[in-house]
Write a protein that binds this DNA or RNA. Sequence first.
RNA 1: GCGGCUAUGGUGUAACGGUUAACGCUCCGGUUUGUGGUACCGGCAAUUCGGGUUCGAUUCCCGAUAGCCGCCCCA
Length: 432
Amino acid sequence: MKQKGKLSTAPYKGVRDFYPEDMAVQRYLFSIWRQTAERFGFEAYDASILEPSELYKSKGTVNEEIVSEQTYTFTDRGGREVTLRPEMTPTVARMIAGRRRELRFPVRWYSIPNLFRYERMQRGRLREHWQLNCDIFGVDDTSADVEIILLANEIFKNFGAENGVHYQIHISSRKLLEALYDTLQLPEDIRVAVTRLADRKHKMDADTFSQKLHEIAGNATENLSQFLNATTLKALPQPVINSDAYAELQTIIDTLEELRCAVTFDPSIIRGFDYYTGIVFEVFDLHPQNNRAMMGGGRYDNLTALFGGDPIAGVGFGFGDVTLRDFLESHNLLTAYDTAPTLAILPTATYLNLEAQKLAHAFRSADIAATVDLSGKKIRKKIAHASERLCTFALVFGEDEQREKTYTLKNLNEGSSISGTLEELIMYINNS
RNA sequence: GCGGCUAUGGUGUAACGGUUAACGCUCCGGUUUGUGGUACCGGCAAUUCGGGUUCGAUUCCCGAUAGCCGCCCCA
C-alpha cells in the first residue's frame, strides 16, 4: 500500500535486493565461477569494500575525475577520505605489493567482490555489482596471457555457452597501437583522441568512423585506418608487423586456437584503463539484444609499482554478474540452485509443532535437511506447499505418529509412501 | 551532465473524457475437521504526487518524483 510518509520498500537507487529466487541464481553463478577458477589453481582472497580514496586518485588524471564523479566517496569521522571500491584491481595490486617479499610467484588469485560506482544507470549497468576477478602475478610471458583467456573461455563453457555461437572473444595488444603511434611520431594529444575514438568504433558506422578519424589524425589517417579496420593480424600496416608485439599476439592466438579456444583479432579493443600495457581482450555477447562487451581484461605490468619496488607483471580480468545474467537469460542458459530441504514435516495441528521440531532435529542430526511447516493450514495445503517448494519427502506428524513413534514418509516426486521408525526412515532417505 | 519513453491492486495488463475502474497470476478462505499441485466458489487489494482544462479526468495539459532505455563516460 502506497501511502504518504511511509518508507519505500524499493532498494536504494541502482542497487539490488536479492530475494531467495535471485539468491538461488546468484549462488549458481558464483559456484561456477569458483569451481572453474579453482580448477585452474586459483586461490580465493578478499578485502573490505572500503579503501582510502588515494588508492584510486594515484592512477592519473583521468582517474581523478572518475574518483570524484563516479565513485561513492565520503569523509569518515576521523577526517579520512574513503571510497567504496569501484574495481578490484587496485586492491589486489595493493595486497600483492604489500607481501611482495613473502609471496612465491607466480601467484594466481581470484575474488568475487561487490563493487560500487556512482553513475547513470542503463541496461547492464547498475550502481552496484559483483565481479569475478582473476589475476596472475609474476609471469611476464605469453603463457600467462594464454592461461587467463583460456580460463575466461572455460567459464563460459561451464555455463553451457559455446564460443562462436553465444559469445566471441576479441583480442588486441596495447603495444601494437603504441608501435604504430611511434612510427607515425604522433603527438600525445592525438594519440589519446585516436585511442578514445577507437574504443567507440563498434558504436558507429564505418563512414562516421572514417570521417572522425580524419578530423583527428589528418594525414596519418591512412595508416591508422588500415590498422583499426584490420580484421586479421596480417592486414596490419607493415611497421607494426615487424614489431615484437605482433609476434607475441600471434603466438597467443595460435596457442589458444590449438586449445580450441577461438579468439578474434580486433584492433579496436582498447579498454578504458590506462594501466594496461600488453594484451587486452573482451568477450562479446552475440545476442543482438546485448551488443556489447560482457567482460574483459588484459596485461598490466606496472600497477604494483605505485607501491614502490620493482613492478610485478600482472594479467587478469573482471567479469560482472549483471552482464552475465543478461547474457545467460538472453540465451536461455540460466539455471538456479535448488535450496529446498529434503524433508518437510507437517504437523496436523499447531500444538504438535514443538514435537515436530524435535523430530526434524533428529533427521538433521543424520545430515538430512528438514523443515517443519509451522503454519496453521490444513494438511492438504501443507502437502501442496511442500510439493511446490520441491521438497522430496513429506511426513505428516499427528497424534498417532507422536504416540506410536512410527511415521509415514511420502515421496512427493513419485507418489509412493513408506512407513517406519525414525532410524528406518533416515536409512531410507540416505539411501535414496 | 544530456535526451527519449513510461507511471493503474503484491505482480502483469485493461478501461472513447462519463455509473461500482475490469481481467490473469499471487495470496487468503471454502467445497474437503489427517494426505498432492488440478477444478469450482468466495475474499483481500490500485489510478505516484501537486497544479490546470472540463459539468465531469485513470484518460487531455503543465510541473515534481520515480522507473526504464539511449548518449556521455566506463576502473
